[in-house]
Design a protein around this nucleic acid. Structure first.
Lengths: 248, 248
DNA sequence: AATTTATTTGCGTATTTATGCAGTATTAAA
DNA sequence: TTTAATACTGCATAAATACGCAAATAAATT
């Protein structure tokens, strides 16, 4: 087997599993671990995977580690500032959870006089700090990880509402696959949120652009506005323009 | 599992819960606590989390810890410890808001397997940190000061429930006037909570004993158990014994 | 085709890294 | 204060890696 073939095989494995072990590959490809190590080193130098002790990880995996851990992200502040201009006095606004949304809430002007609906406990808590806004929490069973209400009851409630705006903190967005997420229960609620809003706004830091997770929240066509910390004319956003979405 | 994978997992947990325990991680990842400690140390050196005794905290939500530690007065700890013994596995427990209740939640043993219903946002958030409890939030319009749901909707919901226990954080309690409070909207909800519980437990630090506020929540007869930080035989509590209430 | 040249691979060995364990010290809670 | 949980130290072990070198393979040249 040629080196290039091995490399292709390794990258394929990385794409599927997000990681490879040198020992596994050595067996699967019947070459010595030394060879594998050298392969991984080359692929790392090419920048298409991340070599670690014992094997290698997908770059996208590596991103998970970095992006989620960065302290007080300035990107999120930028997004928040762009987003808050969409909110006007008297509006009924639906908010999801997530740190970007929290940042948005923090950046709301104190004199703003609007009503917010949310299913996220931390978002609600943050909203309560604002003197002039009304806060409505749609409750039910709370999901531990996501710290938000989930379940049929929530979906039902949401269906009885028609909001002006819905802001979605977005984990993964992609031209092809739309907005995707991991947990079914969260997705059910997010979909209900989208249905009950006149305009849907996706907030996504650029690292989440062109990433995909297991399960579909909605197609891009269902999103009206996409907000990132980048200039709307940025290279990476070009494919999104053609979908008819407004990019801020 | 590769070290980086562990690190990613840990950071993911941190993002979700704002804190991790070494002991939990050790079990979840099936490595020794030593390894976890070394992991946390590395991540701390990277500056992406804060290592503390027993685990680690998120950098971004560091203030959460401050709040949590600052507010915990020793009296409330004592009350919390007395109260938690009333809660058994499988129970359905109703919780109000307030720092004493928060303290109770914090002192719950991690292995406790019960369902909690609350209308208080901070209480809900605290409950979400417990691995084995189910949390149900009864939502509606949120009241700013009290950080809890209020309104007819909440009262209606509560009326559909029958809980084993109801813990009330108490602002004022008095032999003559019973439990009293300030805000009408809060009182409406508290009354509904009392109605839907088999046993009502009032948690009150001794400063609040023999004080009265404007509006009645309930008469003493409706309360089954009173918990203070004092010895039940304490002088100040004597008049309460004759009302038939159990004092712990 | 034969030979040279360059590249790739495997192996032995020394080194580094990762992890767990035991004993002791320290810290936080009861 | 006492007790239990957690942290630190040093050490042992196993796995992973780096390195040099020689054999094997591929590519290029004559």
């Amino acid at each position: 087997m040629l080196k290039k073939e091995r490399h292709a095989y390794i990258m394929h494995e990385i794409d599927i599993h997000n990681k490879v072990l040198s020992s596994d590959l050595s067996l699967q490809l019947t070459v010595s671990e030394d060879t594998i190590r050298r392969d991984l080193q080359e692929l790392d130098e090419k920048g298409i995977l991340t070599k670690v002790h014992g094997g290698a990880l997908s770059k996208s995996f590596h991103f998970t580690l970095q992006n989620k851990t960065v302290f007080s992200q300035p990107e999120k502040k930028i997004i928040a500032h762009k987003a808050r201009n969409l909110i006007k006095d008297g509006m009924l606004v639906l908010l999801s959870g997530g740190t970007t949304i929290i940042e948005l809430v923090k950046s709301l002007p104190p004199e703003l006089n609007a009503t917010f609906i949310t299913v996220s406990v931390p978002t609600a808590l943050e909203l309560l700090d604002h003197p002039n806004v009304e806060v409505i929490f749609i409750g039910n069973k709370l999901l531990k990880n996501a710290q938000m209400s989930v379940g049929a009851e929530v979906v039902q409630r949401l269906s009885e509402i028609k909001c002006d705006l819905c802001f979605l903190g977005t984990n993964s967005i992609d031209v092809e696959n739309g907005i995707t997420d991991l947990e079914l229960e969260v997705i059910e609620v997010k979909r209900a949120m989208i249905r009950s809003a006149k305009k849907v706004v996706s907030l996504a830091i650029s690292k989440k652009i062109n990433t995909t997770q297991r399960m579909l929240v909605c197609r891009l066509e269902e999103v009206d506005i996409l907000i990132t910390e980048l200039d709307p004319a940025h290279e990476i956003l070009k494919p999104y323009h053609s979908t008819g979405i407004t990019i801020i």
